[in-house]
Design a protein around this nucleic acid. Structure first.
Lengths: 194, 194, 194, 194
DNA sequence: TATGAATGAGTGTTCATTCAT
DNA sequence: GATGAATGAACACTCATTCAT
């Protein structure tokens, strides 16, 4: 596959991404993507053979670009608490947005694709996030911002709460206030009074 | 619709429940249900006009029967801690079971049906569970089993963690050990040493 | 079939008549009629076995009741011209009404049912109307109201024009003015100046 | 849609035309047309999305080809009376043919499609025919073949009679003799003795 | 590479008709 | 007589997928 093909593949994935944001995963047909890309039906099949394949590519590209959910938060003189807070705020913004998110599509995709662990990007992201949070907490404890006995457990707990909030946002609905309340609860657990 | 029809409707809902457990929500067609019930194509339409309608009925029936997720746990001489523990164990069992659960189907259903709050059975169940847990914690604090400053916040936190575990079980996978670890973390948050 | 059955049959036919007026002939299903009559599905089949059969009965009943399209027009001292004029006015009213008419249903019915002449009520009505008009014209000629050389031909011509207006009303549309114009044209053909 | 598609579309319309002639409009299903064309179910939907759409195309094509019902009748040395007579004979032939005519299908189509005037091809054809007949009569009057006071009225009258004959042919039935009789009556109205 | 016409399987949905009660 | 649940055939419509060009 030449240079050109790579570009086209990328183009398709980007267009498809919009479609998945709009309609989730299951509802999306090859036809939808063909139309979004404005290419021929047969043309799409030269690059991908199913919506699943395309979606996996979307996820891969997404995870490459946003490999560093934290990177934005990390500045020269930001403290651990600053960074964690920024991360949580980012997550809040993301989970309150019902459209323009791949959340729903991603869940739907994983529902019907029991990927072996090593291919499960979602799991990788989860685990990596846990680790980073753990480091942050440890750093926070060191500089006196946080109090914490079981840093790893707390990091994992934070991630599961965020997952809980995310899925709740898509099903039972969550208000901005509800999210704030949970974030505050988590911070109090770290000994942050505010 | 007479006595008999009610029975048949119930029969259909029960058969459909199995199908939804097996295949989730979106993938299920009217034909699937017709075949599971071993009735005629037209026959099904006598009772329901869409898979959505059937699924809502499944949810309603389910929530009626299991109205009391806690009831099983409540015995004469069970303490608050006993009951909470039993509830958590029940949840663990449920979330580790990938098949024979309506979890996935329920999520898929709510993804594409933005039900107004009052019709959202899921939300009702969530809120009600939060309240019960809150009461349990308060009772536990009273009898010295638990330590807790913000009972309501903790109850909500527990529920979001459980939601997080549930969706993770369906997407990135969780082991029994991972669940145990989270439960222990939650209990330690209540001052339970063990 | 007893007294009672006759009544019920009549009841069905009357309700069905409304349905045919509303929807024409072809679109009407046995189900439509069952619902309009508020009887059971099987119940209808006790009396009729198809919409065709019901419609024929509607036509028969209709033609019995209105056997005398002219009768209303005939009063003690009405002249031939008076009566013909009234008849034409009646026809005008009828053909401008798009709903509440069996016109369309009747046409549709005859399109797919090549009834032998003797069963063709429509033909009987047409022929009978021609004859009456002929008599009227003759009477009109006798009393000096009309001028006419070929009374039978003229009568037939009038009926075909009316048929032409009727079908045009259902297809290309006719205004009240257009109908008036045609009626005037016909009357002038009879030597009526006005 | 390229050159080829246009040809195929035309092919479908032609085949569909035969089906409509055979069965009228309402009875015809997409499946009927698919079978007549010997193409796949989905193939038809590539070109048309309903029988209505196809039928409108049939009508359009028909009206293009036969744009000039009169053209055949017009020869170098034909007089107005010759042309009118030929036209009437053509109409007679058409209306006596029960099959191989779109008459019935057209009526059925317009019954359930209240097209706005400008889209109503039928109306356009009617109006245009009236005008041509009017011109013919005027020409005939000029060269002494016809006698007529109200040429426009007479032209319209002729057309309504023809409509009346056409619908009668489809419903109560008309014999060749009956048609001849009417034509003669019309001609006598124009002062033609024969 | 790229096109887009073509196929055919799959699903939703409606009704005429039957039949046990 | 009367009911209405049940059946199954028929049709509309949509897509994944292929293939000649």
């Amino acid at each position: 596959m030449g240079e050109k093909s790579v570009q086209k593949k990328r183009y398709i994935v980007e267009k498809a991404r919009d479609v998945f944001m709009e309609k989730g995963f299951k509802k999306v047909t090859m036809k939808d993507i063909v139309e979004a890309c404005d290419i021929s039906r047969g043309g799409l099949y030269l690059y991908f053979e199913s919506t699943s394949q395309i979606f996996m590519e979307v996820l891969r590209m997404e995870s490459e670009e946003a490999d560093d959910v934290f990177s934005d938060s990390i500045t020269e003189d930001a403290t651990a608490a600053d960074i964690l807070l920024l991360f949580l705020k980012e997550q809040k913004k993301e989970l309150l947005r019902k459209k323009n998110t791949l959340t729903q599509a991603t869940y739907e995709f994983y529902f019907e694709n029991d990927l072996p662990k090593r291919d499960n990007i979602l799991k990788k992201q989860f685990d990596s996030a846990v680790k980073i949070i753990e480091k942050l907490i440890e750093a926070g404890v060191d500089n006196g911002e946080f109090l914490c006995e079981d840093c790893e457990g707390t990091a994992r707990n934070i991630m599961f709460v965020l997952e809980g909030l995310k899925i709740s946002a898509q099903t039972i609905g969550v208000t901005a206030e509800a999210v704030d309340r949970e974030i505050l609860y988590l911070l109090r657990g770290l000994g942050v009074e505010e």
